[in-house]
Amino acid sequence: MTARDFTNSEKFKDLVRTRWTFSFIMLAILFVIYYGYIFLVALHRDFLAVMVGRNITVGIVLCTAVIIGSWLLTLIYVAWANKVYDKKVESLKQDLQ
């Protein structure tokens, strides 16, 4: 099997497709979280000023939530890559030998 046959194999193509599909889904979630927040700041100020505790506003909670959410997305990616992507890579490396 030549290198080109290998990269053209369904298994290899599946690896590439899975990798980018997952990445772009994660990127889309990040966009929704971050730009959702920014557009609330720009257009719905009243909502951000709603109090959820004694002098703690929705805005303050959301700001922290966006940071924690972004952080969680990176952790989810690492967990996914360790569990799914690396397994596929290992299996492909086996085939190559």
Binding site: S23, F24, M26, L27, L30, Y34, V66, S70, W71, L73, T74, Y77, V78
Partner: peptide
Amino acid sequence: VGWPALMF
């Protein structure tokens, strides 16, 4: 927010 994007 650039950091997760860098990762993906």
